[in-house]
Computed example of a mutant assay.
Amino acid sequence: MSDYAYVADRAKKAFASVSKIEAALQRAPDDVALQINLRSMKRVADRALDELEKLAALNFIEVCKYRMVPVPNAGYDLGSVSKALLEYQNLFSQLYDSFRNGPKSKAVIGREARLESSLEFAYSYSGSLGVVLLTKSDRDFLTGSLDDAIESIYQIIEINDIDAVRDIATARGRAVVKRVYDWSNSLAEGGFSVDIQWRRSDGKLLSEMVDRNRLEKIAGFIIEAADTQIDDVLVEGILVGANRETGAFQISVPDGETYKGHFDESFVVPDEMTVGGFYRSTIRVSDKYYYASDTHQMSNSLINLSGPFTVKKKV
């Protein structure tokens, strides 16, 4: 975006001057000259920002003002700030990828999708820790290539229960939910609220302030949310072990899988179980997926067991 470097540099210098004058006013709050200079420089900065936004609209540049506001008596830990910015980029790119290439289960961003949704730092501005980010889009008369991803940011911050988490997973993929968790949790742990404002190149303005408590709740809903898939599998194999007291069992399929688990509540324990015998069984396989950690918890329950049977040897 070198074509916009001059205007962006003007805005950067203007807002930097505003910050310096504000810092000087904190040391000398009654200095009239500083007060006049601050008002004047704020007008310069506002004009520079207005010029930048107009230039961006003409050239299909989407402008994001991203401001992190620390809780009282908290500062700007570098690790927390950098992580929150990185996770915001990852979330935005994952959202764009879900529209471009379809929803994904794993939090992996396609190379082209990442390049097309990369956010470029323009400058910082006063008022907590604010940064202006730019990204180029393709736009026709009706829509822009990044419109859906931008609007989805504001849908995501409306998460208010576990069902909303599952709805996002269904519509945009598990990968997006994982990115939402990483982003919201990084801000909450860092002690930040966040103010997000997008000025799209079609002139539409979207803006919302999300406080730290709300970010914590979003992360909490994702931690609580999980999907469970249950399948009853017919298994023929060797009973490697079975413990009547603990309910543990192990069945191995020759040249195949090994199933370890416990007796189901409905399982009727046979009078005899021959270790090393060949049995037919129904095993309930449960796969529980946790969005926040992107991990699976597998468990097996033995539903029924019949045998032992004699296995004919291959000639």
Rank of each mutant, 00 (worst) to 15 (best):
F221L: 08
K217F: 11
A8I: 11
D31C: 08
D202T: 03
V315G: 14
S306F: 11
A56S: 08
E265D: 14
T170R: 15
T310E: 15
A57V: 06
E245G: 08
S145T: 00
L91F: 03
G75L: 06
D271W: 08
D46W: 10
G237H: 00
Y125Q: 08
G102K: 01
S124I: 01
E151F: 12
G277L: 03
I238M: 07
Y291R: 02
G220Y: 10
N243I: 01
S40T: 13
S2I: 15
I36V: 13
A292W: 04
D161S: 09
S186C: 04
A242H: 00
K20E: 12
E112L: 13
N101Y: 08
K42F: 06
I230K: 08
D148T: 10
V269P: 06
P29T: 07
N101D: 13
G247F: 01
I303N: 00
G191F: 05
E216W: 10
Y154Q: 03
R166P: 00
K83G: 07
G241T: 10
S98M: 03
N213A: 15
G256S: 03
H296K: 05
L25D: 00
D9T: 15
L302D: 02
Y154S: 01
E120M: 12
D167P: 03
S152W: 02
R172K: 13
Y6P: 05
S2M: 15
D138A: 14
I223H: 07
I61D: 05
W183Q: 08
F249S: 02
E236A: 11
R67I: 09
A24W: 05
S193G: 09
